[in-house]
C-alpha cells in the first residue's frame, strides 16, 4: 500500500500541476489512525492524503456536494467498488461527470477495525501490510494478524479489481494485484430465508432494536442522496411516525431498504458505519437476491445510464402472483 500511496500522491501532484483539477476528495485520519473519513484537500495539503487499509469509506457520495462550485474539476479517488456507486450517481443525475476527474486506484481489501479489536489488539497506532499479514503498531508493541481475518464484510465478497468507471487508472486493472474472494455473497441471506417467518421476524427485531437512530447508515449510503430525507421532512408524515414506538422505529431501516432497492450497489457502507454493528447490508442483499431471481442478474452501477429492473417494464417480468408462491 505504501508504494501505491506514493504513486498516487505523485499522480495527484501531476494533475494539479497540469491544471486538470483544483481540489481532491481524499482520506484523512481522525483522532485515531483508523478513524478515516473522506475529506477535501487542495494544492496546499495534498501530501496529507492517506491511503492505507483503513481507507474503506466510499467517496462517491461526497462528490454530490463536492463537485459543486470550484473553477476546475474535482479529483475523485475511486477504489474498484466505489466506481459502482459513482456510476449509479451518474445514472440518477446526482453528479455531473463533466465536473469530476475520476482516478481509479487499486485496492487489496480494506480492514474492519472491529475485527482487529476482537482479536484483542488495542492501542492501535498504525498499520502496515506484510504480504498476507498485517503488521499493527500499538502502544504496547507490534502485533500481527492475517489480513483475511480482519477484512471488511464488503471485501470478503469483493466485486473484483476492475474499475467500471473513471477517466484514468493509476495502474492498469490487469497489473493490479488479485483480490481473493473469501465468502459467498448470499450465504447469510440464504440462512435468513431458511428461517421460519416468526424466527426471521424475531431475529430482525433483535438486530434492529439495537438501533440508536444516529442516521450514520443513511448519511454514509451513496444511494441516500435525497435533498431532504423523508425522515427529516415533517410534512411527509413518516418522520413523526418512526418516533411513535420501538416497532415503528425499526421501520426506519425497512423503509430505507425499500428506498434504495434496485439502486443499492452493495457497497456495505451502512454496516461499516453502524456503531451498533447491525448487519444492515443483509436487508439490501435480500432485495438484490430477489431482483436477480425475478428479473435476471443485475448489478446496480455496473454501467451508467441504464434503467434498473425496478424502474423498467418488460413483458417477461414476473407476475405479482410470485409473491403468493414464494411467501
Amino acid at each position: 500500500m505504501r508504494d501505491i500511496r506514493e504513486k498516487l500522491l505523485k499522480k495527484i501532484h501531476e494533475l494539479f500541476d497540469a491544471g486538470v483539477v483544483d481540489r481532491v476528495v481524499g482520506w484523512k485520519a481522525g483522532e485515531f489512525c483508523y478513524d478515516v473519513t473522506p475529506a477535501l484537500f487542495n494544492a496546499g495539503n495534498i501530501d496529507e492524503i492517506l491511503y492505507d487499509a483503513f481507507c474503506g469509506p466510499n467517496q462517491s457520495k461526497f462528490l454530490v456536494k463536492g463537485a459543486e462550485g470550484g473553477e476546475k474539476k474535482i479529483l475523485a479517488l475511486l477504489k474498484p467498488c466505489d466506481t459502482y456507486s459513482y456510476n449509479q450517481l451518474i445514472t440518477e443525475h446526482r453528479i455531473d461527470p463533466e465536473k469530476i476527474y475520476a482516478l481509479g486506484i487499486p485496492c487489496t481489501g480494506m480492514v474492519d477495525i472491529n475485527k482487529i479489536r476482537a482479536l484483542g489488539i488495542s492501542g492501535i497506532l498504525g498499520i502496515e501490510e506484510d504480504g498476507e499479514n498485517l503488521k499493527i503498531e500499538t502502544l504496547y508493541g507490534t502485533e500481527s494478524c492475517k489480513k483475511a481475518d480482519v477484512l471488511l464484510e464488503r471485501c470478503l465478497v469483493c466485486k473484483g479489481k476492475n474499475h467500471v468507471a473513471g477517466d484514468e487508472l493509476l495502474i492498469p486493472d490487469e497489473e493490479a494485484p488479485e483480490v481473493p474472494k473469501c465468502a459467498e455473497r448470499m450465504t447469510e441471506v440464504e440462512k435468513l430465508e431458511a428461517m421460519s417467518p416468526e424466527e426471521r421476524f424475531n431475529w430482525w427485531r433483535s438486530q434492529l432494536s439495537k438501533c440508536i437512530r444516529c442516521n450514520a447508515c443513511r448519511n454514509a449510503c451513496p444511494a441516500c442522496t435525497c435533498r431532504t430525507c423523508v425522515f427529516d421532512n415533517p410534512s411527509s408524515g413518516v418522520s413523526a411516525k418512526v418516533n411513535t414506538n420501538d416497532f415503528e422505529e425499526n421501520m426506519f431501516h425497512i423503509i430505507r431498504a425499500f428506498h434504495v432497492a434496485g439502486r443499492c450497489t452493495d457497497c456495505g457502507e451502512c454496516s461499516r458505519v453502524c456503531p451498533q454493528n447491525i448487519p444492515l447490508h443483509l436487508l439490501n442483499r435480500k432485495f438484490i437476491k430477489d431482483i436477480d431471481e425475478f428479473y435476471g442478474e443485475y448489478q446496480a452501477g455496473a454501467e451508467p445510464n441504464v434503467r434498473g429492473p425496478l424502474i423498467s417494464y418488460t413483458e417477461q417480468d414476473v407476475e405479482p402472483s410470485i409473491v403468493m408462491t414464494r411467501g
Binding site: E92, C226, R227, T228, Y313
Partner: peptide
C-alpha cells in the same frame, strides 16, 4: 421542486 433531487426514476416508470 424543493424536495425533488432530479434522480429521474419517476420519468422512467411513467407509462
Amino acid at each position: 421542486p424543493t424536495l425533488c433531487n432530479g434522480c429521474s426514476q419517476c420519468q422512467n416508470v411513467c407509462a
